[in-house]
Amino acid sequence: MSNRPAISEEAIVLRGPLVTGFTDEEFFQFCQDNRDLRVERTADHEIIFMLPAGFLSSSASAEVVRQLSNWNVANRLGRVGESSAAYVLPDKATLSPDASWFSQANWARVPTELRNKFLPICPEFVVEVKSPSDRISTLQAKMEQWLSNGAQLGFLLDVETETAWVYRAGQPAEELHGYDQELDAAPVLPGFRLDLQPLREE
């Protein structure tokens, strides 16, 4: 599988030695200096500026984080991140899922001095929520990139069409329709089931 990252046709991409030569620290500072922008970085260190999410997709992402956080508080098995958390992956891309979870063991691998920066780990579980500017094919490629970098489980959600894809390491993606159901995250997150009903737009 190619390590070329998923880039939306609608995204603005910066290329060239000035930006591709950024160290991880310089890229982190670049993001701090541009806090109002949604920024990711490809495996080739190209910088991607993504369009802002619409309200409905943003609200859906917040609901996912809420459910995931409630489960994590009860179980205390790891850490939860929302869309401002970013991960420096083994293929050198820096990506920010809409929601993420990683184990305490994974957290222990992060040096103390990097814990308030972009984490040099891949979360075990990620969720991507389609925004109006996203293409499903782009997000599907991104989900495969998460898995190829070590994620064990991922949910891709298209709230507008009430479609969900479940990605498990080593298995084909499962496509599900209708948000009158729950997505089972076991065994990666034992006991966590994402209730899709609150994501529906009545």
Rank of each mutant, 00 (worst) to 15 (best):
M1S: 15
N3A: 12
N3D: 13
N3Y: 14
R4F: 11
R4K: 07
R4G: 08
S8F: 01
S8H: 14
I12D: 08
R15N: 10
T20R: 15
G21H: 14
F22E: 14
D24Q: 00
E25H: 04
E26L: 03
E26T: 07
F28S: 02
C31Y: 14
Q32F: 07
Q32N: 10
D33A: 10
R41Q: 13
R41P: 04
T42L: 05
E46P: 02
I47Q: 03
M50R: 10
M50E: 14
L51R: 11
P52S: 01
A53W: 04
A53F: 05
S57A: 13
S58G: 15
S59T: 00
S61Y: 08
E63C: 08
L68T: 01
W71L: 05
N72P: 05
N72F: 09
R76T: 06
R76H: 04
G78K: 10
G78V: 07
G81Y: 12
G81W: 11
A85F: 05
A86N: 03
Y87G: 03
Y87V: 01
V88E: 00
A93S: 15
L95V: 03
P97R: 13
W101P: 08
W101Q: 06
F102P: 02
Q104V: 01
Q104C: 02
A105L: 09
N106C: 10
W107S: 03
P111A: 05
E113R: 04
E113A: 13
R115E: 06
P120Q: 00
I121A: 05
I121Q: 06
F125K: 13
V126F: 10
V126L: 08
P132Q: 01
R135S: 13
I136V: 09
Q140A: 09
A141L: 15
K142D: 03
M143H: 01
M143E: 15
Q145W: 00
Q145V: 03
W146G: 01
L147R: 07
A151H: 14
L156V: 04
D158P: 04
V159A: 09
V159G: 09
E162H: 05
E162Q: 15
T163D: 09
W165G: 02
R168F: 00
A169Q: 09
P172L: 07
H177Q: 14
L183I: 12
A185Q: 05
A186V: 06
L194I: 08
D195M: 07
D195S: 05
E201D: 03
E202H: 15
